[in-house]
Design a protein around this nucleic acid. Structure first.
Length: 345
DNA sequence: AAACCGGGGGG
DNA sequence: CCCCCAGGTTT
């Protein structure tokens, strides 16, 4: 038997009414919509990032920049430092741009099409904000929705090629009203019941409509294209310490860790090993090797140390007080290097 | 369409 | 160790 779209959405909304997660950026089902700033900020933070990881950052940002105007007025440097550790730093760069545009507009636009034009907002985030903050009907497709839809309708084409048909199916079961609650219902279902490693069908409100469950092996879906293996890259970073300060450089461009402060290095990237000479010619001491994994490469970063008076010519560097390193906003890779060196003092 | 872009948590 | 996550942008 085939369940109607209306039945599926009604079951999911009813389930959400009872089992919605309480999240700092979310209001209870049926309550007035949360403010667009909170929705936008949380949605951007949640891009490819788990709820648990986002919570402390969301709290910190809301406390420090309570609305979009406060954030628009903040120095980009401060926002980048506050984002440090959360990853995908283009999000932070775009966050600043977006806040500035929205402030100039006098507030967030309310339609999906207008939202989609803002920096850092793609199809998912624009739809989510339109639906959740502005009550518009929008088809919200994230990784949870992809998984739930793939199982509900036994989509056999592998991701990411199946995204088109998944969107069509999601559109079919998205209700005209409460599409924001509906989207959050599917996301909650995907995070607690219909997870990537498990399918708790006995607890699922749409189990009877689910074709994968009927087939007996829901974990078969979603089918995914094989992954590429990650190469190992090697590079070197330099700890230059002088008179209670270390030398930090702000990484230029939009590449790896772009816009973030870090130790000077030899130019390693995801595409190749580092090969540039050190920033100064001195006798380096080897502190050890940091292992760190990025989206598409493993990195073995050799950390070398020099302590003593020196002059460095670099446009983007600064001497940073050692006792204020916590405020430098170092991404995790360099935070690891700092811990390695400080552990040896 | 494919590559690029972090980091942490869980099995 | 591998897999996954409230994806977007660039090529």
């Amino acid at each position: 038997m085939t369940a109607s779209p209306e039945h599926i959405s009604a079951q999911l909304l009813a389930w959400y009414g009872k089992h919605a997660r309480q999240l700092p950026w979310r209001v209870q089902p049926g309550q007035p919509a949360p403010d667009p700033y909170s929705v936008w900020l949380s949605e951007v933070m949640l891009q490819q990032t788990t709820v648990a990881a986002v919570k402390p950052y969301f709290a910190k940002f809301i406390e420090r920049w309570p609305d979009v105007y406060a954030l628009a007025a903040a120095p980009e440097e401060d926002v980048m430092a506050a984002w440090a550790g959360l990853g995908y730093y283009s999000r932070a760069r775009n966050l600043v741009k977006c806040a500035s545009e929205v402030a100039a507009m006098g507030g967030f636009p309310e339609t999906e099409d207008e939202l989609r034009k803002l920096p850092g907002l793609g199809a998912y985030t624009a739809a989510a904000i339109a639906a959740i903050a502005f009550g518009q009907r929008a088809v919200v497709v994230d990784a949870n929705v992809e998984r739930v839809i793939s199982r509900l309708f036994t989509i056999s084409e592998p991701l990411p090629g199946s995204r088109k048909i998944i969107r069509v199916r999601a559109d079919q079961i998205t209700p005209e009203k409460q599409s924001g609650d509906f989207a959050q219902a599917v996301m909650d279902l995907g995070s607690s019941i219909c997870t990537s490693r498990d399918a708790k069908c006995l607890l699922c409100p749409v189990a009877e409509a689910c074709q994968a469950r009927q087939g007996g092996d829901p974990l078969t879906y979603p089918v995914k294209a094989p992954k590429k293996d990650k190469p190992i890259r090697r590079g070197t970073a330099y700890w230059i310490e002088s008179d209670g300060h270390i030398w930090l450089e702000t990484r230029q461009g939009t590449g790896m860790l772009g816009g973030m402060r870090g130790l000077p290095d030899d130019g390693w990237s995801a595409a190749e090993d580092g090969k540039m000479p050190p920033p100064i010619s001195v006798n380096w001491a080897e502190a050890g090797v940091i292992r760190h994994t990025f989206t598409h490469a493993h990195l073995e970063l050799s950390v070398r140390v020099y302590r003593g008076a020196t002059a460095i010519q670099s446009e983007f560097g600064q001497w940073w007080p050692l006792d204020r390193l916590d405020d430098a906003g170092l991404p995790t890779l360099f935070a690891k290097a700092v811990r390695l060196v400080l552990a040896q003092k």
